[in-house]
Structures are given as C-alpha cells and as structure tokens.
C-alpha cells in the first residue's frame, strides 16, 4: 500500500517539476504546430481577415499557389543551389583539414583554435565584413571607383581583372560566389570539430596495419579513414543539408534585409526569407511555405539516412 502511495506522490511531483517546461512548450511549440497547419489549409488566410470575421475555404489552395509563385520558385532555386554546392565542398574541405590536423603534432592546438574561430562569431557581423572586403566603393557609369576593395586588389595583383562582386550592377553569379564562400567559411568549424573528434577515436591499429602493407596515403585516406569516419561524415552532411535549407542570416549579413544588391533586391532570397517576407501580411502563404520547408528537410534527412545505412560502415 505504502509503496503505491509513494509512487503516486512521486508521479504528481514529477509533473510539477515538468510543469514550467510543458506549459511553455504547449504555447510556443505544440500550438504553433497545430495552428501553422490550420493556417496553411485555409484559402488566402491572413490574421487580419480572420479578425474581421472572414470565413476561409478549406483546402490545399495555399500550397498550390505557393508552388506556382515565381518569387517562391526563385527562393527555392537559390536555396537548393546554395545547399548543393556548399555542403559537399565544405564537407570535403573540413575532412581534409581534420585529417591534416590529425597527422601533425607541432602547432596543432593553435591551428585547431584558429579553425574553430568562425563558429563563435556573429553571422550578421562577419557578413558585413565580407561585404566590405568585396565591395567596390564609388564609381558608376563613366566614373572611376575610388576603391576596388581588398579582394579585387588581390585579384589584380595576381593578374586578374576586378569584378563587381556585390555592388550595384553586379551579376547574380558573382553575388552567389561571395555567398557560397561565406557559407563555407561559416560551416567549416563545426564540421572540422566533429570529424576531428571522430578521427581521434579511430583505432590506430588500422593505420599501422595499412602501413605495414605499404598502402599509399591516398589509399589509406579512401579505404580506411573515410569508411571509419562515415558515421560522422553522414552526420555533418545531414546537419549541413538542414542548415543549408534554412539559410538566411548569411544573406542578411552580407546584403542586408534587401536580400540582394541595391539594383535587384530579393535576388538572393531564400526559403526562410520567403517565409519571413509573408509572415506579417499573408500567414496562410507563410505557413504553407514553412510546411514545404519542413517536408523538404524531412525528405532530405530520410534520403540521407537511407543512403548512409547502405554506405555507412559502423
């Protein structure tokens, strides 16, 4: 009798401990899931219309509309392009850096600290630095610029010709190049940290065996390092894809809320940018876009897990 009593008392107590967390989660996590789905399924929903008593037709109208919306297609295209380029490149680079770090002793800690630095900085603030580095100051039709910026100066020193990377009149390709560079710069630290952690836990015997067999460095890398690291590689690829599809701050950091150079605002807008653009006036559309984003992230994660199940060596 007493034991059950004690357990019951404990049950009640456990819920009390959980109360603050559960109450907040109910309001800011559970309700949003329900309400965002609801808004996405009501035709032309907006909070203003609802408050003034409008009744909305139920259906998949918002989803159909969103996917036919040119601005959404552009955002989706930009996001896909950024993700498809930055994830493989940054993963490969991070892997090379992690392997290099793992095979040196002298100065290793200093290098490790340097490579981790971008992680602790502010994405918006350093985006502004990238803007400063690539920007051409002054100039215009027929007027010489007063400064071509440091990156163009370096390009010129190597014999290239200055390019309008981010300023008025720049091409979308040039904008994208800067953005991709910045996203990779930003993505490296986390990937290096995870991969280096993985490398350090790899059993050294595999390498010694390979060395005895006279395997080349290249062969050791592809046949031993990559397979043994595959769970970590799968992990950084999945989180990379998720982060890539949620790209937003890097664009704001470099180009500001305009999401593009002054002559073509919105040119570099992303999926998340599209959601925030519509959040104030057109919540039905924003909700549909958020759910599409969720579906894409879920699908990419499942595909990644499925592929890695086949390829990953545990």
């Amino acid at each position: 009798m007493q034991r059950t009593k004690g357990q019951k008392k404990n049950q009640w107590k456990a819920w009390l401990y959980l109360l603050p967390a559960l109450a907040l989660l109910a309001v800011f996590t559970v309700w949003p899931i329900i309400n965002t789905i609801r808004m996405s399924l009501l035709k032309d929903y907006s909070i203003m219309a609802e408050l003034s008593g409008t009744k909305f037709r139920f259906g998949f109208d918002n989803f159909v509309k969103v996917t036919r919306y040119p601005s959404f297609i552009k955002c989706l295209g930009n996001t896909m392009l950024l993700t498809v380029i930055t994830v493989p490149v940054s993963t490969m680079l991070a892997l090379l850096i992690a392997v290099a770090l793992n095979s040196i002793k002298f100065l290793r800690r200093i290098f490790q600290t340097i490579f981790f630095l971008p992680y602790v900085t502010n994405a918006i603030a350093i985006g502004m630095v990238f803007m400063a580095m690539f920007d051409i100051i002054g100039g215009g039709p027929g007027i010489e610029p007063s400064s071509i910026g440091i990156i163009n100066t370096i390009i010129k020193a190597f014999g290239g010709s200055p390019i309008k990377w981010v300023s008025t009149g720049s091409t979308k390709t040039a904008n994208m190049a800067v953005l991709i560079l910045y996203i990779i710069w930003n993505a490296l630290p986390f990937k290096i940290l995870v991969l280096l952690g993985g490398l350090q836990s790899v059993n050294k015997q595999y390498y010694e065996a390979a060395k005895v067999d006279g395997a080349s460095r290249f062969r050791i890398f592809w046949r031993i390092t990559v397979p043994l690291l595959s769970p970590m590689i799968a992990y950084v690829v999945i989180t990379g894809f998720i982060g890539g599809f949620k790209e937003y701050s890097s664009v704001v950091g470099i180009f500001g809320e305009d999401m593009g150079p002054a002559h073509d605002p919105g040119r570099l807008n992303t999926m998340v940018g599209f959601i925030y653009e519509n959040i104030k006036g057109n919540q039905g559309r924003a909700s549909a876009a958020a759910l599409i984003l969720f579906a894409i992230i879920l699908a990419v994660t499942i595909i990644n897990l499925y592929v890695s199940k086949k390829k990953v060596h545990y």
Partner: peptide, 17 residues
C-alpha cells in the same frame, strides 16, 4: 521529435501569439 521541425514553422504562429 520536435527538434526535427524547423523553427520557422513555430515562428509563423508565435509571431501572431
């Protein structure tokens, strides 16, 4: 499981809340 859901999905509603 809620960690899987992108924050933007919550933000749309939370902005109204």
């Amino acid at each position: 499981a809620t960690m899987m859901i992108p924050g933007e999905l919550f933000t749309v509603t939370n902005f109204l809340t």
